[in-house]
Amino acid sequence: MHILATEGLTKRFPTVTALDRLSVTVGSGVTGLVGANGAGKSTLIKILLGLLPASEGTAKVLDLDVATRGAEIRRFVGYMPEHDCLPPDVSATEFVVHLARMSGLPRTAARERAADVLRHVGLAEERYRAIGGYSTGMKQRVKLAQSLVHDPKLIFLDEPTNGLDPRGRDEMLALIRRIGTEFGISVLVTSHLLGELERICDHVIVIDAGRLLRSSAIAEFTHATESITVEVEDGAEQLTARLAELGQTVTPHGRLLVVKVLGPETFDAVRDAAADLDLGLIRLEQGRHRIEDVFREEAAHV
């Protein structure tokens, strides 16, 4: 079942076109929405929440049309905005309890759920202190907690790692992965950093200037470009020739040779060729391309 689906979704503002005929489907699990700043990520989320009308096209979230059933969608969806959204003079507990009630939870259930999610996002005793004194990392956790407090089926996280230091970033990413797997809540997470989404997503959607560049499972992203990097002391040309004879695809990259992996026989071919030619093999490593490279290639084609 699709968690969300858009069909020819277009959003025009007076001066820019934020989304341009975007058609995409998202299944359950963790989905990354990647694009540079201004690519249309936040606009897409606002439309999916039913807060912004689309200029053209349709979008469905949890099988509900965003144009007509926004209120129902918002009952079962959580949203963590990119910007600051926390009042400084209340405690995290009070704030999250209040927003749980705004999602329709009765008072006692709101208190229990708030305590639960604050524990899950890793806020301990400090949750009783005023939010004004929190670090950026703690504030991001409160923002995440409020998006989870009503136990949604799907959450939209807009740049959740923004402003975090490397450790905070790792912890946030691990938490998002847990939400998608252990908690069983589908996640749509945006980022302009491709590398970090690679670690936690099942599926990645790349958009640029409001248009879809690519949408596919993470395995396809990395699989399609699987290769090994080979480095020998001398005689790279000889090795290239020998490997070509053996039916391998070799691309020289300076001192390095990038060999496309056709199967296990590729590794054997490299080993045998190096041994036959009596070459000193220095490096033989899995050259898994990062999503970045794919993005760069795709962007170059457009």
Binding site: L51, R74, V77, C85, P87
Partner: peptide
């Protein structure tokens, strides 16, 4: 800017 948190609810 707490308003978006209300509006993303019912």
């Amino acid at each position: 800017r707490v308003l978006p948190l209300y509006l993303s609810r019912p």
